[in-house]
Design a protein around this nucleic acid. Structure first.
Lengths: 216, 216, 216, 216
DNA sequence: TATGAATGAGTATTCATTCAT
DNA sequence: CATGAATGAATACTCATTCAT
């Protein structure tokens, strides 16, 4: 039942860009808490301190709004990582800094991560958006591994670089998920652990030490 | 006069157990295609070839129905794995068979996997159910790793067994996700790849070869 | 959600009359607790320890079932009163015994009273049934008052006997309602109070002491 | 060419307060005709000339809507009575004016009365609301009786003031019920009758003339 | 006789979206 | 620019009632 409280917003006529950010902030918050379907435009508008028609005027339909959230949060995350892992650094340094930036971001923006990883995955219309983001990550990681190997004068063995990279990204996401659910966990420590798995494990693996199914 | 063969096999008045399975089949299918919220009880009932009230009578509310799906599919998957990876086998053999069974299951029941992992993850009410299932998996994997190490006369180094196990499970889930999205991919091959990552990478890691953050 | 508990009723093949009484008992109970609309045939059948089709076979539709309840309970109550207030007694004795029987009945069968008075009144289809029952009561009471007056050699003044009787019945029902809501109250005492109101108050009134609106 | 006079007065976009009253009007009408359960929100909305979502937005769920009706009608009735029976008047004058106002209200708003007394009584969730209203009435009546007695230099005998008041209120409600069912009946005349019962009967009773059960 | 299986029809409630002001 | 008012269309859930066995 609509409460009859007059909100009387004390800040009117804000420039469009500011308003849009307010709306996106509210949307990310609500989407992450409720999920795409359970989130209501009413709640988002109210949380943004703005009327519903404005939300529609600025960001379009609910689906478009969600995509906008995805976009903003995804870009922010990518920038955080890219900003930390400069391409001119040695591979292990890059990987470490990338992981640290990544887990740092997830730890600091749990809502963003929830929207990106947990909500978007379940809903068909956004799977593509997500997949492409992960693909970029996989590519970057594979590149780093390859670079590292070549620096040691070796090359990836028969095992595909991509699959290892995919597994590493998966493991990373999984730990990030765990981190998002454990507010007291330390992002730095989680990054160190993942770095261990990635660097030592994958390194060894890429050096050719491989396992084969038993032939019965 | 030609005898009129009864072409409609009178699919009615089936015993409860049968109908329940039909309903769960339909529910898994619809939930996996549409997601929990977007799925409608109408569609599930229609797909099961039965009226809505029967679904409510037998399986309860939408939420309870989803939990029932989760339960059945999760149990099936766990049984597939447990049946393949007998505890008396050596650790590497167990791990390999377990992975093969797992990827085989995912490859053969993509719908189940979608229900279990993609839908359940996004919806608050089911996160717990999911988390506990994953926790059991992590425990099993950690146990296998520990067992394997001891068999080699070693012990896990400073890196927590659990975190490595968690990362491995995450990587595995991630590859399963990928497999579910690529109908032509070969489950067996995917299992082999994951076995490489798990056995060689983790093995090395557990043997004490660890990485430490640079101290600036 | 239908529980899958097998009830295995230990008494089968009871004679029809017994079964019908069981059903009516259950129906009165459920109707009085939930009200006509909120009561469900499922609950009634279950409470009667019998399957729904049997209820329909024996007592007909929900509406018919409710009428049957009304009938049985109404008859019981009327019989309790009539049995106590024999016509050959003097008027005050009759009134007193009638009231005592009435409040005794209500105190002992709160469910019956709830069905008769609270539920039936709100539902259009049963208003008639109820009204006729009350009309009979009013008539009886008016008869008693008239009889008592004549015994004193007087006649009812200008005030209609019927209206006073109606008011008395209303007051009685109201106290009965109050009694039904107060399990610890004593029916006998309530009857005494009502007797006071009825006998002394009405007696005086009927003797000609009347009030008239002020003429401005 | 004839000017086309706008015959449809564009009954749209009315302010909230107006619409709320329209909705309550419709709700009272429908609830009184059908009863709480049988009434449908669809019919109420349609009767109010507005869509269902507006009803929910303004007045909330069906239960809340019914309570709102109860509240408005109850308040109106109480105000009608209180406005007529000013406390500074002598007790008999007050009682008479109160009764006249009450029966006048019931005669003029049969729907309100039906909602207040017939429907609310049967439904558990509203019994409390009702009981408290009646309790207030009983208290007022008891107060008036007491006041009148003291003015005559007497005090209430052993019979509780409250019980007599309760019986009077019950009788009044009963006559009101009768009035609501008989559109041609005259409210003023009914009030006079009730005044007789109340003033003469109760007066006598309170003066100490009491009846006692025979001791056998 | 007795019942588990089955459903058509309805009901409360919600939500994304759009006008009129 | 900004919003209160408004709704079409869905959706979960229930219930009286009836068959087939």
């Amino acid at each position: 039942m609509l409460a009859r409280v007059s909100t009387t917003p004390s800040f009117k006529r804000l420039p469009r860009a500011v308003r849009e950010q307010q709306m996106l902030d509210a949307a990310v918050k609500v989407f992450s808490r409720r999920g795409f379907h359970a989130a209501s435009m009413d709640e988002i508008a109210e949380d943004a301190g703005i009327s519903k028609p404005m939300v529609y005027a600025y960001l379009g339909t609910k689906e478009e709004l969600f995509v906008a959230c995805l976009h903003r949060e995804g870009t922010r995350m990518m920038q955080a990582i890219a900003g930390a892992a400069a391409p001119e650094l040695p591979a292990d340094e890059r990987l470490w800094r990338g992981l640290r930036a990544f887990f740092g971001f997830v730890g600091a923006h749990r809502d963003s991560w929830a929207v990106l990883y947990r909500q978007a995955r379940g809903e068909q219309p956004f799977a593509g958006e997500l997949a492409s983001m992960r693909a970029r990550l996989v590519e970057v990681v594979a590149g780093m591994l390859d670079h590292a190997l070549r620096a040691e004068g070796r090359e990836a063995g028969e095992t595909d670089l991509d699959v290892i990279a995919y597994a590493l990204v998966g493991a990373t996401e999984s730990l990030a998920d765990w981190l998002a659910d454990h507010p007291q966990a330390d992002p730095e420590k989680t990054a160190t652990r993942m770095m261990n798995v990635a660097w030592v494990g994958a390194g060894q693996l890429l050096r050719g030490d491989s396992w084969r199914p038993p032939t019965p």
